[in-house]
Design a protein around this nucleic acid. Structure first.
Lengths: 245, 245
DNA sequence: AATTTTGATCTGTGATCACACTTGCTATGA
DNA sequence: TCATAGCAAGTGTGATCACAGATCAAAATT
């Protein structure tokens, strides 16, 4: 007896995993996002569609649509010449970004605190351990991995806040502050090497204790630190430029 | 003596305003935004690129890029079929949106309160007067104008907050809650007609007194009202559907 | 008669082309 | 010598085309 098409389909479905249908545009968009958050593009750098397309080895079409999306998220900036660049970092913009990140990410972690399951806390602690492993053996500062781990740490927590509206906003904020924090982390690695993980441990401790407000305060301290450092650096740069001109 | 080109340019610049170079994509994007905020598209409605393109009498190219942008803002939703629709309204999503709007728009108005110049307050009061004019003579409820006026009122205030990071977030939130509040306003117009302007007057009074926290509270009351109404409506609908099935 | 197959149509996706605009360089003029 | 005009390369924008997948209705099969 012949099997019906539906039955045959069931047999295959049991053995074959559904192949995801990720479009080229999605990949390009994700790649540009990753580069932006990781700070691979310098502030004020001008990007051209054709060069990005050849670098990603696709046509211009997926790139221009991805760039349009990134412009609406304020992750890129459209110049009046119709060219695009990554937004320059100014003190005003940094203060604005920091204030908003404290507001939104603080709320997200306060919402997440009572919702963190033991399993979620364990996976966050695993990220802390990964951090220690990375730092211990090799002394060469792997900024890329540091940025990635920091991102995974924060988003693993935020994911527990259960808000489908807050999450994209946090991603947008990271996208906008990405080019800044990269240079901040570089500066930190050069200067004195404060123990970044200490702040993360404070966050995890507050979360394990289900103390929402303590978690919020620890988070504020964590994300304020690189911004404050970068701020003082920018101010001294401005003074020097003013003095030399 | 002949003037140099730069000098001639200065002379012209004093008399001629620079001609804006709005692209077709910008117009399409703005139009779709306006339609979404105004609630011209129903929740769960499926949109096709080609139909929108013909409705806007352009090619598909500007439309698809605009739609990509709207999807990243969560103003539209990409289905696994690769078709797009305006997101359906659920109780969870509404609560999520309202909570976030209270957080962000509350912060924006608290920031704006001490920065409202007498001129800015006057222009907001002018919008209140427009509201009264609209309501007084004609009894036919012009929902379109009501939505527009409400939007202008709120954004005239938020604009004073001076944050280039908060503003796009507020716009994104309005874009996401647009399809909901339209049906809420319709429901309000049908049922009993609470005096919407009363809440707005309370906001203006608090702003005139430079009282940031009072302004925040008045704003929370204003934006919570339609959501609460819509929420109870959705819950009764769910009960009816459950009862009839 | 119910179900499956088939075919036509529609939709999103990506590539390519044409056009307008900007930019940088070069040559020509005063 | 310097500023201006002119040319050339490069860029974003929008239209059009080709193609794969989805959807739905009619037709053929069991």
């Amino acid at each position: 007896m012949l099997k019906s098409a539906a039955e045959r389909n069931d047999i295959f479905a049991a053995q074959l995993a559904p192949v995801g249908r990720e479009t080229v545009q999605d990949r390009v968009y994700a790649e540009l996002r990753r580069a932006l958050i990781g700070g691979l593009f310098a502030p004020s750098q001008v990007l051209t569609i054709r060069s990005l397309a050849s670098a990603l080895s696709t046509s211009t079409m997926p790139v221009r649509e991805s760039i349009s999306r990134l412009i609406t998220e304020k992750a890129l900036e459209a110049l009046p010449n119709r060219s695009v660049r990554v937004p320059p970092v100014t003190i005003e913009r940094m203060d604005d970004l920091l204030r908003t990140r404290i507001l939104i990410e603080g709320e997200a972690i306060a919402l997440a605190a009572p919702r963190m399951t033991p399993h979620a806390i364990a996976s966050v602690e695993a990220l802390l351990a990964e951090w220690d492993d990375m730092r211990a053996p090799a002394q060469e500062k792997d900024v890329d991995q540091e940025v990635t781990l920091n991102q995974r740490f924060h988003f693993e927590i935020y994911r527990a806040c259960g808000s489908a509206v807050l999450m994209p906003m946090i991603e947008s904020l990271w996208l906008q502050s990405g080019p800044c924090i990269r240079v901040a982390i570089y500066a930190f690695s050069d200067a004195g090497e404060v123990d970044t993980a200490r702040y993360h441990r404070a966050i995890v401790a507050a979360l394990a204790a289900q103390d929402a407000e303590a978690a919020r305060e620890a988070l504020v301290a964590d994300i304020s630190r690189p911004f404050a450092y970068l701020r003082s650096k920018l101010e001294s740069d401005a003074e020097n430029r003013e003095g030399s001109s």
